[in-house]
Design a protein around this nucleic acid. Structure first.
Lengths: 150, 150
DNA sequence: ATTATTACCGAGCAAACCACTAGGGATTGG
DNA sequence: CCAATCCCTAGTGGTTTGCTCGGTAATAAT
């Protein structure tokens, strides 16, 4: 029941772009440095995100990447689904109705996997990049206050 | 976001044992045949379930496996956790507090992964083997009625 | 026009993981 | 005894993961 690093890194990168939203194109190199991810590897992940239409690229010097939509309009689910494929604990949920399901009792378990999938989807779709940015700046604020107390 | 077949097969096997609960030891061979799983492979999975205390074994001829507890007292979550390891979409949730989390903003994503983990856990723990057996026999009942209509 | 900076692309690759298979041994009922 | 059954370890081919390497193309700054 694990994500690969693709989803993890990709989300961190998109969060980083959201934090710098409005500042023009952000070069992948700076994202990779801030998020401590291999630049070349991140390049491959963001290529997928670009093809899926979640980010736009600007080539050449002073170029970089920009979110295609406002951070409020991109959910964590959007990102994870692009990078990790369809959310489904077992493969048979992705095949068409009845295709992979020959065993009658398989459907008893299928029911469970469907509920799992839906609950994961619900959680992932309930967070936007804007939520994350807001949370992060709030946490930083708390850190500041904390400093005063020392 | 996939389970391996370990969880899938293991659950099917445990469901099978639940269906035959009260009939004495059930040989792994028959489970493997009914569930269409490689016998030797299933052997390895059930060994893990035995070590975790979910099934008891009876050796020798006429031997086999029996659920250690009543089907109502074994949840799908119990089985999945044993076979797939701790439910956690990212590794950092399994390490102790603050260990793997040096980046401040990682915690923004951590929050999300925690909610995902909890929702998966809730769903998996809400089903018992008894639920599955009940559902299966209901489905079979429906099939019967359906036959009359033809 | 040149150069530096960026995105873009494809190949390769070691390590890990998955889903088994093979080949035995130990225990017990008949 | 012997057949059935659980128990254990090791190997294995294929896939996936998480990268690295080495380039090409586009563009802003000079």
């Amino acid at each position: 029941m694990k994500l690969s690093t693709r989803g993890e890194y990709g989300l961190r990168a998109m969060f980083d772009l959201a934090q710098h939203y409005g500042e023009g194109p952000i070069p992948i190199k700076s994202v990779a440095e801030r998020q401590d991810i291999s630049e070349h590897y991140l390049e491959q992940l963001i290529a997928v995100l670009r093809k899926a239409g979640l980010v736009k690229s600007v080539r050449g010097a002073q170029g970089g990447y920009i979110l295609s939509r406002d951070p409020e309009e991109i959910t964590v689910g959007d990102i994870i689904r692009v990078l990790e494929g369809p959310i489904a604990p077992v493969e048979c949920l992705n095949t068409g109705e009845g295709e992979g399901c020959e065993r009658a009792e398989t459907c008893v378990t299928r029911d469970i996997w469907e509920k799992v999938r839906d609950s994961i989807s619900d959680v992932l779709d309930s967070f936007t990049l804007a939520d994350m940015v807001a949370k992060a700046s709030k946490m930083q604020q708390n850190d500041k206050y904390y400093m005063y107390y020392i």
